[in-house]
Design a protein around this nucleic acid. Structure first.
Lengths: 168, 168
DNA sequence: ACCAAATAGTACACAAATGAACTATTTGGT
DNA sequence: ACCAAATAGTTCATTTGTGTACTATTTGGT
């Protein structure tokens, strides 16, 4: 019995009490929230042994997957889907631990470029097996076709969510 | 051009550098995170006029959709998918504002039962139109079949995520 | 009946996230 | 050329979220 049943029952009853409350999107949004929380919590458990948390990991992975010599903090903010102030906070931590390098962008003096240090690269490659295993477990929920379908549907939902936020 | 493209490019490159890093589930997990964040941010904007934030809303909705006279804090924790300490924190706020009632459970002296006050019910019904509109906008991304498919797939992913966490 | 283990909810210290303000720099319009 | 508006990144105060410890109560095994 999933804990989500409790959530679902509440949503169904809300829809009955207030018929304009749209059951389906409410469910989707709650499911997304619950999954995100679980992933976050589990990732935190896995990453603890490396002295990291999920947010650190997200930022590090975006740096690892960067093909230029460095990326701006704004690029990192977008890729990691974190607020600017939080990116700065996490970057400070990573920098203090020697995993991140910072240098001025010669093309725009407002900008700071950030990249992984060799120690940072080594750290990432240290935790990548564990995190890959975890991700594979999530992926095991679906076959290839379902995975592709889900990616398409989620991308669409994200597109709409981004649009809604822009229009506010 | 979605900001998610930046994320996707980093994931693709990471997969090239480290082929065991599973591109598909990494994408799914990142999409879920991004959507959750957008929903959270937008909900906060919408709810601000009522003096509420997204977490408050989530808790209130679980209370509104409760058919018994009250629910235990543990039930609320499960339904709202929040940590116990956070539920207590939010309940304190709602209680202080007169939106929530608290009383002892006659059947188990460890338990506290919580429910909406009439003012709390009125508050919920005040913001329900706005939040319903927002949810309908998210739902507009899909037709009925896609919605049903997405709900099924996300429920499965949540089931796996819950299982993984239990096994740790 | 007794007692260890489990449970319920809260307090509290701390971590993580965020909004707003800020300074420096760049851009775009006149 | 000038300047207002926009941008980049950081700081900082505050809010939000969480892990752990705690007390009281209940459960389950002997």
């Amino acid at each position: 019995m999933s804990r989500f049943d409790a959530t679902e029952n509440r949503i169904n009853l809300t829809h009955q009490r207030f018929p304009d409350y749209p059951r389906e999107p409410a469910m989707l949004v709650r499911l997304v929230k619950a999954i995100s929380q679980h992933v976050h919590d589990t990732a935190n458990l896995v990453l603890r042994q490396y002295g990291l948390n999920h947010t650190d990991y997200n930022v590090l992975m975006m740096l690892y997957g960067c093909q230029q010599e460095g990326m701006t903090v704004t690029q990192l903010r977008d890729a990691a889907a974190e607020k600017s102030a939080n990116v700065t906070r996490v970057c400070n931590i990573l920098y203090d631990r020697g995993w991140m390098a910072r240098f001025a962008d010669p093309q725009d003096r407002r900008r700071v470029l950030v990249s992984l240090t060799p120690e940072g690269e080594a750290l990432v490659e240290q935790f990548l097996p564990s995190m890959s295993s975890l991700l594979n477990e999530y992926g095991s929920a679906f076959d290839a076709q379902e995975t592709a379908m889900l990616e398409i549907l989620l991308k669409r939902l994200l597109g709409v969510a981004e649009q809604i936020e822009r229009n506010l």
